Computed example of a mutant assay.
Amino acid sequence: MRKALTAILMASAFAAPALSQAADQRVEEARALVKSFGGSLKQALKQAIENGGVVNGIAACNTLAPEIAAQNSKGNWHIGRTSLKLRNPDNAPSDWQEMQLQAMDKQPVVNGKPVEVWQVSDAVGQPEFQYMSAIPTQKLCLNCHGSDIKPDVQAKINELYPQDQATGFSEGDLRGAFVVTYRPAED
């Protein structure tokens, strides 16, 4: 029994660097997906606002955000967004995500960079890898997520998101987080 336990512990010790390398690779891939998704979404939103004002931006975000997320979700990877104050109830956080959002809410940016967290799991029903990157509220966001929203903008928000909770933010507040998950192919 003692030999078997020693062999398991030694095997675990040798597997740890491999697990760390795999996790590091997953983190880098997740960061790249966030950069692509976030950049594409911001560009599409800015373009929509330039073409038709903030009301047009809300409509574009309503339809384009899911499309851009789908375009950036490749193979076993899925990307989306979540928040403690949801605009779209389809983006509700899991228990783990909610716990991370609550921690991020205290300080969404550290050393000028959005806070990021990740976990590796072998729990049944859970993604093998989950990554989150804070989305701090930027000045552009305040048009639709701030405290002083114009009536025509609020009317469009009410039309597209009747259960909206995503207002009252100030610049720098945690608006939400990008969520990246990796699930291996089912056998």
Score class of each variant (00 low, 15 high):
residue 109 V to N: 13
residue 137 T to L: 07
residue 51 N to H: 12
residue 174 L to E: 03
residue 90 D to K: 15
residue 147 S to T: 07
residue 101 L to A: 02
residue 78 H to M: 08
residue 177 A to P: 03
residue 28 E to P: 06
residue 100 Q to F: 07
residue 56 N to C: 01
residue 144 C to M: 09
residue 8 I to L: 15
residue 70 A to R: 14
residue 177 A to K: 03
residue 37 F to A: 10
residue 179 V to L: 06
residue 118 W to F: 14
residue 101 L to Q: 04
residue 139 K to F: 13
residue 96 W to D: 12
residue 50 E to N: 15
residue 32 A to S: 14
residue 110 V to G: 06
residue 166 A to N: 07
residue 29 E to A: 11
residue 142 L to S: 11
residue 113 K to F: 04
residue 161 Y to F: 14
residue 148 D to W: 04
residue 65 A to H: 05
residue 58 I to D: 06
residue 28 E to K: 15
residue 126 Q to L: 12
residue 7 A to T: 03
residue 73 S to N: 05
residue 36 S to F: 04
residue 186 E to R: 03
residue 127 P to E: 00
residue 40 S to L: 09
residue 44 A to T: 01
residue 166 A to G: 05
residue 172 G to W: 15
residue 93 P to S: 05
residue 160 L to W: 14
residue 55 V to D: 05
residue 173 D to R: 06
residue 179 V to S: 02
residue 48 A to S: 15
residue 22 A to R: 09
residue 40 S to G: 13
residue 80 G to K: 04
residue 24 D to W: 05
residue 28 E to R: 15
residue 152 D to M: 10
residue 58 I to Q: 08
residue 11 A to T: 05
residue 117 V to K: 09
residue 167 T to A: 13
residue 88 N to H: 12
residue 109 V to G: 06
residue 136 P to M: 02
residue 109 V to I: 13
residue 3 K to Q: 10
residue 58 I to K: 09
residue 38 G to C: 02
residue 82 T to H: 07
residue 111 N to Y: 09
residue 30 A to V: 02
residue 125 G to Y: 01
residue 7 A to C: 09
residue 54 V to T: 09
residue 37 F to Q: 13
residue 157 I to A: 03
residue 67 E to D: 09
residue 147 S to W: 02
residue 155 A to P: 09
residue 158 N to E: 14
residue 117 V to T: 10
residue 146 G to E: 08
residue 5 L to D: 04
residue 141 C to S: 11
residue 52 G to H: 12
residue 175 R to N: 04
residue 41 L to D: 05
residue 42 K to P: 01
residue 47 Q to T: 09
residue 91 N to F: 12
residue 70 A to Y: 06
residue 173 D to T: 02
residue 136 P to G: 08
residue 87 R to H: 08
residue 87 R to I: 00
residue 160 L to H: 09
residue 104 M to D: 11
residue 87 R to P: 03
residue 163 Q to T: 02
residue 6 T to R: 09
residue 17 P to W: 03
residue 50 E to I: 00
residue 18 A to H: 05
residue 150 K to I: 01
residue 32 A to H: 13
residue 93 P to M: 08
residue 139 K to N: 12
residue 40 S to I: 00
residue 180 V to E: 04
residue 46 K to E: 13
residue 22 A to W: 07
residue 85 K to E: 04
residue 32 A to L: 15
residue 120 V to E: 14
residue 68 I to V: 04
residue 116 E to R: 11
residue 136 P to Q: 06
residue 109 V to Q: 10
residue 91 N to Q: 14
residue 145 H to E: 02
residue 145 H to G: 02
residue 41 L to P: 01
residue 102 Q to I: 09
residue 140 L to F: 15
residue 25 Q to S: 11
residue 117 V to C: 06
residue 126 Q to V: 00
residue 79 I to M: 12
residue 16 A to P: 06
residue 124 V to F: 13
residue 3 K to C: 06
residue 118 W to Y: 14
residue 73 S to C: 04
residue 85 K to L: 14
residue 2 R to M: 11
residue 187 D to H: 08
residue 32 A to G: 10
